[in-house]
Amino acid sequence: IGSLMYASIFGNVSAIIQRLYSGTARYHTQMLRVREFIRFHQIPNPLRQRLEEYFQHAWSYTNGIDMNAVLKGFPECLQADICLHLNRSLLQHCKPFRGATKGCLRALAMKFKTTHAPPGDTLVHAGDLLTALYFISRGSIEILRGDVVVAILGKNDIFGEPLNLYARPGKSNGDVRALTYCDLHKIHRDDLLEVLDMYPEFSDHFWSSLEITFNLRDTNMIPGSPGSTELEGGFSRQRKRKLSFRRRTDKDTEQPGEVSALGPGRAGAGPSSRGRPGGPWGESPSSGPSSPESSEDEGPGRSSSPLRLVPFSSPRPPGEPPGGEPLMEDCEKSSDTCNPLSGAFSGVSNIFSFWGDSRGRQYQELPRCPAPTPSLLNIPLSSPGRRPRGDVESRLDALQRQLNRLETRLSADMATVLQLLQRQMTLVPPAYSAVTTPGPGPTSTSPLLPVSPLPTLTLDSLSQVSQFMACEELPPGAPELPQEGPTRRLSLPGQLGALTSQPLHRHGSDPG
């Protein structure tokens, strides 16, 4: 009997000691992992102490058991019943959930998450997105703005933001810190809205009876308010094209079509300037034949640059190039080494500058006005007194259609001029006259002087055409309008007829 009692007592005591040691061994194993994590990542002392304290409290609170892992091991129907039991206190005593059906309560219970916070733990920081609604079931918390405590909340209090009033989550206007050990039930806004969409009859009752104890939403960050730039940057990543407008005076608003859609830094370009900076079609017209890549860069430059609305530039004389043409100036200075066709295309550029300027006046029909002061630039669209967005969009579309028509007509005119030049060069190729044979009589004449090349004649003739079109064909006081194609086609051969009437002889060394 004594040996039996000794064996039973010894066996029970050893089993008890073994169970104690097993729990202690698990605790030390998990604690060792936490300390190894702290050492590996070199976490500083204040945060390291918070980690160790939280682990110790969580171990004593749950005995080292992962409740979520245990809950996920059950089937979904059983999980709903378990969640309904775990959140029964909240669902029974909170006013917004009263009167809900059994199915609605089960769906809500599945969406709730339980959070346990030790003292000093910050649940929400200032500036964080308010993605959830919090219900306090135990403990107390404090809300701070800077170093000032603005509120202390306790059991059955609710904090967050009214989700039904805002389409997008706002930002917190303060820090939420736990004063004691707290148990909180939180539900994400997407989950709550999903359940309320499934039960629309409960939705009206819920929003009407929901009383948020403390609204954390920062009202200064609401979209459309003066301080909402940061919020707009976070939620409006896919922005449309940006529009900046110059201020319109009362006198300017009476004149229709007073602005032109141009790229940034293009205030001095012609009315047909689009795409790359520098001139019509993204580059100076005089350098068009020598740089074919300008047409390839036109599309990307047009689509990537934001639109700006600026006044037209001052008018340019008909014979003056659009500006920024070092290529043609070098050719004029060193005409001995340049291609003979460069002079002809220089005359073509003069005609283009004249036609572009006159067509700009035809479509816009307003006098040039000086540029406004820099303080009046970049007025935002949302400022008071601005035109409605639809009106601005319609004006932009009208300007775009005008620019497209202008570009089409300029292309047709350019093709006409090039065809005339090619026809003239085919009839009378460039050549130098040879020395004529002296006559049989004693009164022999001296050799004839060489005839100037055709490109120079073409430049003079085209300059005469531009001056003739600019000065004589337009009646005084009438708006400057571009001439039609047949009129220009008839004027060019008439001007060139006198020049080509002389018999030109080919030089023996000319390969053409």
Rank of each mutant, 00 (worst) to 15 (best):
L420C: 06
G508W: 11
R316P: 15
R409G: 08
T458Y: 06
G234T: 11
R302E: 08
G508I: 11
D183M: 15
F312P: 15
V176K: 01
R409L: 08
A267H: 09
R386L: 14
A167W: 06
V259G: 11
E298K: 05
G154K: 08
L376A: 12
S411F: 13
P169A: 07
K155C: 08
Q495L: 08
R409K: 06
S353R: 06
D413A: 03
L418I: 04
R266N: 12
V417N: 04
V417C: 15
S346C: 06
A167K: 07
R168I: 11
G233Q: 09
A167T: 12
H188E: 11
E194C: 09
G497S: 12
G265D: 09
Y363Q: 06
T213K: 03
P340Y: 06
G441M: 07
L327E: 07
C338Q: 15
S335R: 12
E254W: 10
Q502E: 14
P289V: 10
K186A: 13
C338V: 14
D204I: 06
P374M: 10
F235V: 09
R248H: 13
D190M: 05
T249R: 09
R386H: 11
S382R: 15
D204K: 08
F159I: 09
P453R: 10
P475I: 06
G127R: 02
G270T: 11
L309M: 15
V435S: 11
I136L: 06
T213H: 03
F352E: 04
V417S: 04
P447E: 06
P475W: 04
Q255I: 12
L129F: 09
L179S: 06
F345L: 09
G268E: 10
T443I: 13
D157V: 02
R395H: 08
L396R: 05
T445Q: 04
Q464W: 04
F135L: 02
S501Q: 08
I158F: 04
S244L: 09
S334N: 15
R361G: 07
E161F: 02
A261E: 14
N173D: 06
L406W: 15
P493V: 11
R145P: 01
P169N: 03
P442L: 09
I143W: 01
S446D: 07
P317A: 07
P482T: 13
T219V: 14
P380H: 04
E480W: 08
Q495M: 04
L376K: 14
G477K: 08
V149L: 06
P388M: 11
F214Q: 03
Q483N: 13
Y134H: 14
L459I: 10
L163S: 10
S313G: 10
L449M: 13
V348E: 11
D252F: 13
A431H: 13
G324M: 06
T229S: 06
F206P: 01
P511E: 10
S203Y: 09
V176Q: 02
S313F: 12
I158Q: 01
L327A: 13
S286E: 15
D204F: 07
L418T: 05
S446T: 11
R266Y: 11
V148P: 02
L481E: 06
S290N: 12
L499K: 09
P476C: 06
R389I: 01
D357F: 07
R506D: 08
R266P: 12
D336A: 12
L399C: 04
D191H: 03
V465P: 11
P476R: 13
P380K: 10
P370F: 08
I212F: 04
H188A: 11
V176C: 11
G268V: 11
E393P: 09
A151K: 08
A269C: 09
S137P: 02
N164P: 06
F468Q: 14
P271K: 03
V148T: 13
P264D: 13
G508L: 11
R395C: 06
V176T: 03
M221Q: 11
P374E: 08
T249P: 10
Y166E: 12
R248M: 13
R266Q: 10
S303Q: 13
G265N: 08
P315V: 08
G323N: 13
L381W: 07
L196Q: 03
G257Y: 09
P438F: 08
L309F: 06
K240A: 13
Y199C: 01
P370V: 09
D183W: 15
G139I: 01
G227N: 11
E258S: 11
T180Q: 05
T458E: 12
P306L: 09
P486E: 15
G233F: 10
C471V: 10
E329D: 04
R386S: 08
R316T: 12
P292A: 12
S334P: 06
E407G: 10
Q467P: 12
F312H: 04
G494N: 08
R308H: 13
D413K: 15
S287P: 11
R239C: 15
L381Q: 15
P306A: 15
Q255N: 14
G356K: 15
P311Y: 12
Q495E: 05
P482Y: 04
P372L: 09
R359G: 12
D397N: 05
E407V: 08
S284T: 15
P306F: 06
L396Q: 05
L341E: 04
L420V: 10
R423N: 09
Y166H: 12
P475C: 12
N215M: 02
D183H: 14
L459M: 11
G154S: 09
A132N: 10
V417P: 04
T249M: 13
S287G: 14
D191Y: 01
G360R: 09
P370L: 09
L130H: 03
I222V: 14
T219W: 08
L163H: 12
L130C: 06
L341K: 05
N350T: 14
R247I: 12
D336H: 10
S452F: 09
L399D: 01
R239A: 11
S314R: 11
P162G: 03
R177D: 01
P200T: 04
D330P: 11
S433I: 12
G224R: 11
Y432F: 13
P292E: 14
S273A: 10
S244M: 13
C182L: 05
P388R: 09
D197T: 13
S375L: 09
R177S: 03
S446F: 10
D252H: 07
G263W: 09
G288D: 08
A470V: 13
P450T: 09
E230Q: 12
I379W: 04
Y181K: 03
Q400W: 06
W207E: 03
R177M: 05
F354Y: 07
S334L: 08
G323M: 13
W207I: 05
L381Y: 06
P440L: 09
R138C: 10
I141H: 01
A412E: 15
S411P: 04
P374V: 09
D252G: 09
L481R: 08
R237E: 11
P311I: 15
I143K: 01
R506W: 04
L192F: 03
S286F: 13
I222E: 12
D357R: 06
A167M: 13
R168W: 10
L449D: 12
S140C: 10
D190I: 07
F214N: 03
R237T: 14
L153K: 01
P264V: 11
S383C: 13
S349L: 04
S444Y: 13
L243V: 10
P453W: 04
L406Q: 04
S433W: 01
G512W: 01
N156T: 08
E332G: 09
V435Q: 13
E230S: 10
E254M: 06
G154C: 09
V195R: 02
P340L: 11
F345V: 06
Q467I: 03
V451N: 13
E365R: 12
S203I: 10
T408S: 11
T416C: 10
T131Q: 10
E480K: 09
G224F: 11
S382N: 01
P374Q: 08
T426C: 08
P479R: 08
S334D: 10
R248W: 10
S452I: 07
R409M: 09
G356A: 08
R409T: 04
A412I: 08
V428D: 05
S466Y: 05
A167V: 10
I379N: 14
A398R: 09
K242M: 10
P223D: 10
G170E: 01
L459R: 06
D157F: 01
R138I: 04
G360T: 10
P169H: 03
P380I: 03
S272G: 12
P162K: 07
S314I: 09
S411C: 15
T180Y: 01
D175I: 06
L133R: 02
V150Q: 08
G324Y: 01
R241S: 10
L418R: 08
L459G: 11
S461E: 14
